[in-house]
Design a protein around this nucleic acid. Structure first.
Length: 587
RNA sequence: GAGACCAUAGCUCAGCUGGAUAGAGCAUCAGAUUGCGGAUCUGAGGGUCGGAGGUUCGAAUCCUCUUGGUCUCGCCA
């Protein structure tokens, strides 16, 4: 919306500049165009055109060009409303916010929850893979960042018109799974989630830890685990039985974690179903001369064409590897749901793996391999250092959420908000999730980051709870407004009354929202939404502090301001859903 | 050893295709409440954008070199 106005001005400016350059004798092919920018301060205008670049060809100082450009533009017909300002080497435009306010008002009232959606990816089928837990332990902080990014990206793609399929891949086989099974078999004494009162994933995880201890005492432990894997692959009934039982426990536990974290998937894939699928394609590739066989029987790919070394695809005993099954999984996914793109949300330490995977699929002749993307994200550290499972400094996801919720709960009680809430536990949990997701998504995914739990849940500063509070404040005011609403029924919304600087800023922000959604989608970057949310909330917060809404001077102004607040509310709601912040009417 | 990524205030992070005086939050200090939720708001101090060159009218941003850090380079996943 702001975009269109900017484009119009940009065209007008470049048309005039073209004329000026031609008058100065510049050849058609060396005409210089300028871009549109945003002035550093609102009082300097809303759109800026820097004119440095033209001083050479026009043989004039940029400031003189700005003056001439302004007088030429003022004689032009059909330009949008707005005021032109020369500011040194810049020509700035102060747009007419009241007409902008009117069109934003119409657009938000009409589109409501859909306000901000774009057509960037409309008609495209986009698959997103994320989470991908092992079934030998519970989720930890690393998974939480993965899930946050995966869920958020999925929502952002949807908001940009895509049809999205969220998929999970459960890593439920392999020697690491056998380790927890073996430890359970030896030390478990028939313990179950019911008998122990533990969540299934935690119970299984405990035996994975137990294996690590046992491994130190008994050097044959790893060997035994390897044997168990062989039995599993051979379909040994007892082993498969145990595997099924323990997998179920873990999966039920993981499901519970997903539920509390509001994580969901459209389809699950299981490694146990897919691990053999890639093998056939590799063998086919071997037959077609794309890959080659070593003397020992192992199958390899030569990656010198992308300046990498050789890569093993099948072991000498013919069994498949991580990359083998990922080839199979990708192919079967494309068969299941012919996507236009597939994005893997996986830690950046696996960059090499995906580079190779995508290249191999391309070599195998799948043209959709070009549409595979690795959305790599950095590691999460704690304020006191790195998470190391060996050193027991892993942050368990369930514990983290529970701790954050309990902090939120304490705060609610301290502020004596308990009676005002319908359900304190539900509210505390929503605050915890909002805090966590916002904190994790604020940072560019690519970067490593430090997660500070107590800072994330803080109610001061740039946090999820702060944003939720803004939403709750507006809702609270709206409830009061509802009581007197009838008095304002006949008063029309007059956009021109919203003319103080904070109101102008808010309107521009609201108008900018669709562009923000588009950028977040184009960049696959949720932090764009977070930055926007904080920006809007901060301006609103200050505005609301300094200006009366329900007690404004005239009924017309009350109406105009209430509508402005209601627009802010709608945009907060819409943006919250893109970054996993639960919206709270009360908190 | 080779490659990739990163380096911005005491700490955690923004900074759009190169543009106006490099911005937030936390922490520190100083203020604001006969007000729609003070879980708020306002202000101050705090910077050689790791370092050195280069391109450009103009560089935190682009290029080269350099220093420091992280990750990857398994018949593990």
């Amino acid at each position: 919306m702001l975009e269109q106005v900017r484009e119009q001005w940009l065209d007008l400016v470049n048309d005039q500049l073209k004329e000026m350059q031609m008058e100065a004798g510049t050849g058609l092919d060396s005409i210089i165009k300028v871009g549109a920018q945003v002035p550093p301060k609102p009082e300097m205008g809303d759109i800026a055109f820097p004119l440095f670049a033209l001083s050479k060809s026009l043989r004039k100082a940029p400031a003189a060009i700005a003056s001439e450009l302004m007088s030429r533009l003022e004689k032009t017909d059909g330009r949008p409303d707005g005021q032109l300002l020369v500011a040194g080497p810049y020509l700035n435009v102060k747009i007419d916010t009241s007409s902008l306010a009117q069109s934003v008002y119409e657009s938000i009232s009409e589109r409501k929850d859909a306000y901000g959606q774009t057509d960037l990816y409309s008609g495209r089928k986009m698959m997103v893979e994320f989470s991908c837990p092992n079934t030998n332990k519970p989720l930890h902080l690393g998974h939480v960042r993965n899930d946050s990014i995966g869920s958020s990206i999925s929502e952002i793609l949807k908001a940009n018109g895509a049809q999205v399929m969220k998929v999970n891949l459960i890593n439920n086989r392999g020697v690491h799974i056998c380790k927890s099974m073996l430890a359970y078999q030896r030390f478990g004494n028939g313990e179950t989630p019911q008998s122990s009162g533990k969540k299934g994933d935690h119970l299984v995880g405990d035996y994975y830890v137990k294996f690590a201890q046992w491994e130190k005492e008994d050097p044959t432990a790893v060997e035994q685990a390897q044997k168990m894997l062989e039995k599993w692959e051979a379909g040994d009934e007892d082993t498969v039985q145990l595997w099924k039982k323990m997998n179920d426990w873990t999966l039920q536990g993981l499901e519970e974690s997903y539920r509390t974290m509001h994580i969901s998937f459209d389809k699950y894939y299981y490694e146990s179903d897919t691990y053999k699928l890639g093998k056939d394609k590799i063998l086919q590739g071997l037959a077609d001369g794309i890959f080659y066989k070593e003397e020992d029987g192992s199958v390899w790919a030569d990656l010198s064409d992308i300046k990498l070394d050789k890569k093993v695809l099948l072991r000498k005993d013919g069994t498949s590897l991580y990359i083998t099954q990922d080839i199979g999984t990708a192919i079967s996914r494309h068969d299941d749901w012919p996507f236009d793109s597939l994005t893997y949300v996986v830690a950046s330490e696996q960059k090499y793996h995906f580079q190779v995977l995508f290249h191999l699929l391309e070599k195998l002749g799948f043209d959709w391999a070009k549409e595979l993307h690795h959305l790599a994200y950095g590691m999460v550290f704690l304020p006191d250092g790195k998470m190391k499972s060996r050193e027991g400094t892993v942050v368990d996801a369930d514990d983290l959420v529970a701790n954050l919720a309990s902090l939120a709960r304490q705060e609610i009680i301290e502020k004596q908000r308990e009676d005002a809430l319908d359900d304190i536990d539900e509210t505390a949990s929503s605050i915890a999730l909002g805090a966590m997701n916002y904190y994790l998504l604020q940072v560019d995914p690519l970067r490593d980051m430090v997660f500070n739990p107590s800072e994330s849940i803080s109610f001061n500063g740039n946090t999820g709870p702060y944003l939720q509070y803004m939403g709750a404040r507006i809702c609270s005011m709206m409830r009061k407004y509802d009581e007197v609403k009838a008095q304002y029924a006949d008063i029309p919304f007059d956009a021109s009354l919203l003319d103080i600087s904070a109101e102008r800023e808010l309107i521009k922000s609201l108008a900018r929202y669709p562009e923000v959604v588009r950028k977040a989608g184009a960049d696959f970057n949720p932090s764009v939404i977070c930055a926007y949310l904080y920006d809007v909330s901060k301006v609103f917060s200050s505005y609301y502090h300094d200006n009366q809404v329900l007690k404004a001077e005239t009924p017309q102004l009350v109406k105009a301001r209430v509508e402005l607040c209601s627009m802010v509310l709608q945009v907060l709601r819409n943006a919250f859903t893109l970054v996993g912040i639960p919206f709270l009417e009360k908190m």
